[in-house]
Nucleic acid binder design. Structure first.
Length: 939
RNA sequence: GGGCGCGUAGCUCAGCGGAAGAGCACUACCUUGACAUGGUAGGGGUCACAGGUUCGAUCCCUGUCGCGCCCACCA
């Protein structure tokens, strides 16, 4: 017996456990060994993460695909796992140390800290996985991977070493986005532009050798002026042409700044003269290169002024000037404090020409939230420009397709303008870079000015390389600093053992994520999975990580596997709150998917997300919507109960083509139409259309009409018809459970089992491999009959409602001068029509009884005698209104058909369609006119 | 500055070249033997605006006005 109501919380955990235990999520099961493979790799959530609405959407859609393909008999691998999320995880653990008042990361040291992180991961890393299970994700958990697993780490090292050897990874000293809070470099993508109110200060720089001549520059960053090494003007700017080649004197410091001509200087901006600080601005860096300007870095890692002992800064400065020595007092001062003080001094010196207030965008670190600092350091880079060429080409040629297509433009825009990818991070949690250093040989000596790099997959190989290089034994030391003590620089001979140390930095998290589609399959081993599942079929992800992740997987996949990592990239929307705001913790508008699951069930949430996942539009999620789809699960549940209560049990080897009754042929036809619609929609990633088609079919066709129309048979005593109908009800119910299973796996699986024939057990829907298939449509003719019933019943109900005739009032239906076929239909369906429209009797007559309401149903008239109940005038008005509507239809169609161009140029079937419509409308008009005439006679 | 997208019923959104749709909300009626988490019927829209293409435009093109997002940009 099916329970009176469906309780998701009771069912979901139990069902999920049986799925997992049965091994049905696993790829390569014996029964699908011969089947075509289908593979999706999960976008690995951060180990630190907990499930948010974005995950819920992302994984629902993947699960729809995975279950759909599995049910179609394919060998599905949905590859799960998590990402180590370098910065995020390190921050979480550091915060935890602080909260528990434990020693800080630095105090612990690298090894001990990493132990803490691993311990933390062991403890809470499973949270997100368990949450994914709650929404029903059918991943092959036996293959769960973590980006810092041994296998994946091996892949990372191999990729690094190979790219290094191919010259596609290199170390370079250039400006990076430096996060002065986290003390690490970050990539361009991790920088968020934040609009801020700021100031534009106009400073007057004296021109050398000319008293009272100044060149005025504008800056938003006075504190970096100490690192100025030039002033640039546009070569064609008449205001400054005569100053080109002269020198300005940097106030507070006394440095001579060449005034250079460079088209970077924009005469429209600021004063048209721009101070050049190559060590603190990306554009200035380029200008500096063009004019061979020195790089003077005046900030330290923590963005404090760094002046004392700063050789680059001090080089060439006038000694002993009072101004300079006062400036030196600023050493060690934070950038923002220094800014104020420098402005104050410039003002005091009368060199502050003007201050403007303005909005400008300032780059911030997306994790730390502080303004990043362009900072001159040695970092590792990937030559993305080279790797991007095949990656862009693969999409241009269609080997990988984006859905929706417009994202390809975004992808190309990025790929075609790609910058070197900074991959080193000054963190501890991550893949430590497999590079070892020693002092370079300079003849027979070690040079303190240069290091030699040994890149290898293992320490042993790196040390062997070093031994080879030095022709001496080497010893591993902890750091560059440690190496200094053990080397006697300047000694005649090389030391007996040469110190070598490993790069302390780790790789950007996205470096390992970029390998995910093949590293998870076992690469670099040539595993069975690599051969079978790569390239994967679909990648389902959000647009926010097209650059971070998708683009880089394309680059790495093509380079190392010589093949695209996936054929289709489905880009889904962002889930917003019901007012359209981005959900964020700080705004407090986050809807917790687990809360919705608790309240409405996982199926309701999944169905909502799928139903709203229209391509190219964000999802504004409201609880009401979820509630609506929860009601849909209830409807489904009750329909199944109805079937059970009426003895509708699945008949083995039932063939829907064999049914005799019109109603059953009709629903077979409708089922077929629905399954085609749903299948095609999922195949083309139109999840919302698939969900909508399923919803309409189940509710508006199956429940509203088929079950209602089948009641007289099921309750009647014609056993032959009854058996056929019972079998058909059970068949359609089963088809529905299959069609809905990708969207609502729990309730469908539960119903699938509880509706099994008594004493039998059914195999899980998951592995059934019996997705409703498309044979030819079964029967078009049945629509004529069932459609007529539906129209008739609807028309009668309409009249009832209009006339305020409650259900208690039984009416008589009179068929007025109808065809023999219609009369026979009415005869066949008398029970149903009586039941659904609450009639006591159906009769046939050539004329409607006195005081009838006359209705035109599919070109024929039926009447409801309502003597005494109807107002003749009102009835006339009603009919005239209907007549007017039909006449308007005819007029509109005639206008079209009367247009020679339309008839000549519109497609045949469209013209034909219009003619048919005109026929129908005309017939309808005639019937209404007749009805009006009769009404007139009767009154 | 470059690019993408969106303005359709009160709300949230489908549709996107051949007679305006759904869910929710609203109104009226209904404890009819699956379901009140329900049933039946209904009200509600010059499909942002202006041009153009077309036999025909909510749908295609151009422009305007609103709104959102991405990329670039600390003069």
């Amino acid at each position: 017996m099916i329970d009176k109501s469906y309780q998701p919380t009771d069912v979901e955990g139990r069902i999920y456990a049986t799925w997992e235990q049965s091994g049905a999520f696993r790829c390569g099961r014996a029964e699908s060994a011969e089947a075509a493979p289908y593979c999706i790799v999960i976008p690995p959530p951060n180990v630190t993460g907990s499930l948010h609405m974005g995950h819920a959407l992302n994984n629902t859609l993947q699960d729809v695909l995975a279950r759909f393909e599995r049910m179609r008999g394919r060998d599905v691998l949905w590859q799960p796992g998590t990402d180590h999320a370098g910065i995020a995880t390190q921050m979480v653990v550091e915060r935890q140390l602080m909260e528990r008042q434990l020693p800080t990361r630095r105090a612990l040291g690298r090894a001990a800290f990493l132990e803490k992180v691993w311990a933390w991961k062991a403890e809470s890393g499973g949270t997100i996985i368990n949450q994914l299970k709650r929404i029903g994700a059918s991943c092959d958990w036996s293959r769960e991977r973590f980006t810092m697993d041994e296998g994946l780490s091996k892949a990372v090292l191999k990729v690094f070493v190979e790219l290094y050897r191919a010259g596609l990874i290199y170390k370079d000293k250039r400006l990076v986005n430096w996060d002065p809070k986290l003390l690490t470099a970050i990539s361009d993508l991790e920088v968020q532009q934040v609009e801020e109110k700021g100031h534009l200060w106009h400073f007057r720089y004296p021109v050398e050798g000319r008293t009272d001549t100044f060149i005025t520059v504008a800056t938003t960053r006075p504190e970096t002026m100490l690192g100025d090494t030039a002033v640039a003007v546009h070569p064609d700017d008449p205001r400054y042409r005569r100053l080109i080649g002269k020198f300005a004197i940097l106030p507070l410091v006394g440095r001579r700044l060449p005034i250079v001509a460079d088209s970077y200087a924009d005469p429209e901006k600021g004063t048209g003269a721009v101070k050049i600080t190559p060590a603190h601005d990306f554009n200035d860096f380029e200008v500096g290169r063009r004019h061979d300007l020195p790089l003077v870095s005046v900030l330290d890692r923590e963005a404090c002024l760094n002046l004392e002992g700063n050789e680059a800064f001090l080089d060439g400065l006038p000694e002993g000037s009072a101004e300079l020595s006062e400036t030196m007092q600023l050493h060690g001062i934070d950038r923002y404090v220094a800014r104020k003080q420098i402005v104050a001094r410039m003002d005091a010196l009368g060199l502050l020409a003007k201050v403007e207030t303005q909005q400008h965008v300032v780059p911030h670190g997306d994790r730390s939230g502080v303004a990043i600092e362009p900072y001159l350091t040695d970092q590792w880079y990937v030559d993305a420009k080279k790797l991007a060429v095949p990656a862009a080409a693969a999409v241009r040629s269609g080997r990988t397709t984006f859905v929706p297509k417009q994202w390809e433009a975004t992808y190309f825009n990025w790929m075609d303008n790609i910058q070197p990818w900074c991959i080193s991070r000054q963190l501890w949690w991550g893949h430590q870079i497999p590079a070892w250093y020693g002092w370079a040989l300079d003849g027979d000596q070690l040079s303190i000015a240069k290091t030699q790099i040994f890149v290898a997959q293992t320490e042993a190989e790196a040390l062997a390389e070093a031994r080879d290089y030095y022709k001496r034994d080497v010893v591993l030391v902890a750091s560059l600093d440690d190496s200094l003590g053990s080397v006697g620089f300047g000694a005649d001979k090389l030391p007996e053992t040469i110190p070598v140390w490993r790069d302390e930095d780790v790789l950007d998290t996205w470096f390992s994520s970029a390998l995910w589609p093949f590293s998870t399959l076992g690469w670099p081993e040539q595993t069975r999975e690599i051969k079978r599942y790569y390239p994967t079929n679909a990648l389902v992800t959000g647009f926010d990580i097209i650059f971070f992740w998708v683009a880089r997987m394309m680059m790495m996949g093509l380079h190392f596997m010589k093949e695209v990592p996936f054929h289709t990239v489905y880009i889904h929307a962002l889930v917003r709150d019901e007012r359209g705001a981005k959900m964020s913790k700080s705004k407090g508008n986050v809807i917790d998917p687990l809360g919705l699951i608790d309240e409405f069930g996982a199926d309701a949430l999944r169905f909502t997300l799928a139903a709203m996942a229209a391509q190219g539009r964000d999802i504004k999620l409201s609880t009401q919507r979820v509630e609506g789809y929860r009601n849909f699960t209830t409807k489904l549940w009750n329909a199944a109960r109805f079937a059970e209560m009426n003895g509708c049990a699945t008949v083995a080897d039932f063939d829907p083509k064999s049914v005799k009754q019109t109603l059953n042929r009709w629903i077979a036809n409708e089922t077929q139409k629905a399954s085609i619609e749903i299948t095609e929609a999922i195949e083309s990633y139109r999840f919302n259309e698939a969900a909508g088609a399923a919803y309409r079919f189940v509710w508006n066709i199956f429940c509203d009409w088929y079950l209602e129309l089948s009641k007289p048979v099921l309750l009647g005593d014609d056993n032959g018809s009854k058996d056929e109908t019972r079998a058909m009800v059970a068949f359609v119910r089963d088809e529905i459970l299959k069609l809905l299973h990708p969207f609502m796996p729990f309730i469908t699986e539960e119903l699938w089992h509880v509706t099994a024939a008594p004493g039998t057990k059914r195999a899980s829907l998951l592995t059934l491999a019996r997705w409703p298939h498309h044979t030819q449509l079964l029967d078009h003719a049945s629509e004529g009959e069932i459609g007529w019933i539906i129209d008739l019943v609807t028309a009668i109900r309409s009249v009832r409602a209009e006339m305020n005739l409650t259900f208690a009032t039984e009416l008589v239906l009179v068929l007025v001068g109808v065809s023999a076929e219609t009369a026979a239909r009415a005869e066949r369906w008398a029970d149903v029509v009586k039941r659904l429209s609450r009639l006591s009797n159906i009769t046939v007559s050539q004329n409607p009884p006195h005081g009838s309401v006359q209705l035109v149903v599919r070109g024929e008239v039926v009447a409801l005698p309502l003597a005494g109940l109807i107002d003749v005038e009102a009835e006339r008005a009603r009919l005239e209104k209907e007549l007017a509507r039909s006449q308007a239809d005819i007029a509109r169609i005639d206008a079209k058909l009367g247009n020679a161009d339309f008839v000549r140029r519109a497609p045949e079937e469209v013209v034909e369609g219009e003619r048919e419509k005109r026929e129908e409308a005309d017939a309808r008009c005639r019937k209404i006119v007749e009805a009006l005439e009769r009404l007139a006679r009767m009154s």
